[in-house]
C-alpha cells in the first residue's frame, strides 16, 4: 500500500495542475475558484483511500476531470445548454471557418468535452497510455480523440 503521508503537501504540489484543469472547464473566476476547491476536496477524500495503483499525478488528474465533468453536468441542471456540443462539433469540422483568434483557455473551453479533456491532458504532458487510464478508453481511441482535438484547437487558435 502506497498511502500518501502528507495530503496537504500533495495538494500544494498539484494545485497548479488542478487550477489549469478547472480553468479549461470554467471561465467565470468565482465559479472557477469554487471548482478548484471542490476538486481539491475530492482529491483529499480520494487520497484517503488511494492504494497507489497509478501515479499520484494521474490520480489527481482523474479526480479533477471527473469533478469537472460533474461541474459541467450540474451547470446544465441549472441553465440551458450554453452551446449544443454536438452542433458545435459538427460546425467546427475542418471545413468550418472562424476569423476570431482566441486565447488558449478560451479555445479549450470551446472544444467539446471529450476533446477538451484529451487536449488538456496532452498539454499537461501525459502519455497516451496515461490519458487512456484517466478516461477509461483504449489507446487507439485516445489517439483518435487527440488527432481530432488538435485539429479543432488549431482552427480555433
Amino acid at each position: 500500500m502506497n498511502r500518501p503521508q502528507n495530503i496537504e503537501s500533495i495538494l500544494t504540489e498539484y494545485a497548479p495542475l488542478v487550477a489549469r484543469i478547472a480553468a479549461s472547464h470554467e471561465s467565470n473566476a468565482a465559479r472557477r475558484e469554487e471548482l478548484i476547491q471542490d476538486v481539491s476536496l475530492a482529491v483529499w477524500r480520494g487520497l484517503e483511500s488511494f492504494r497507489g495503483e497509478a501515479s499520484i499525478k494521474t490520480f489527481v488528474a482523474r479526480v479533477a476531470h471527473n469533478r469537472c465533468v460533474d461541474h459541467v453536468l450540474s451547470e446544465q441542471r441549472h441553465h440551458q445548454l450554453l452551446f449544443d456540443e454536438k452542433a458545435y462539433a459538427q460546425a467546427s469540422e475542418p471545413c468550418a471557418n472562424t476569423d476570431s483568434q482566441l486565447d488558449l483557455f478560451s479555445a479549450l473551453q470551446k472544444l467539446p468535452l471529450a476533446y477538451r479533456q484529451v487536449m488538456v491532458m496532452q498539454l499537461e504532458g501525459f502519455t497516451q497510455n496515461e490519458i487512456g487510464d484517466v478516461l477509461g478508453i483504449n489507446e487507439a481511441a485516445v489517439s483518435q480523440r487527440v488527432r481530432r482535438a488538435r485539429m479543432q484547437l488549431e482552427k480555433l487558435l
Binding site: A19, A23, Q37, S40, L41, D103
Partner: peptide, 26 residues
Amino acid sequence: KLQQQYQQTTPVINPDTFAKKIAHKQ
C-alpha cells in the same frame, strides 16, 4: 509551443493559503 503557452497561463494560486483553506473545509 502550446504546452509552454498552457503552463504559462496557469491561474494564480497561493499554494499555502490554498492548502490551509482546503484543510479547513475538509
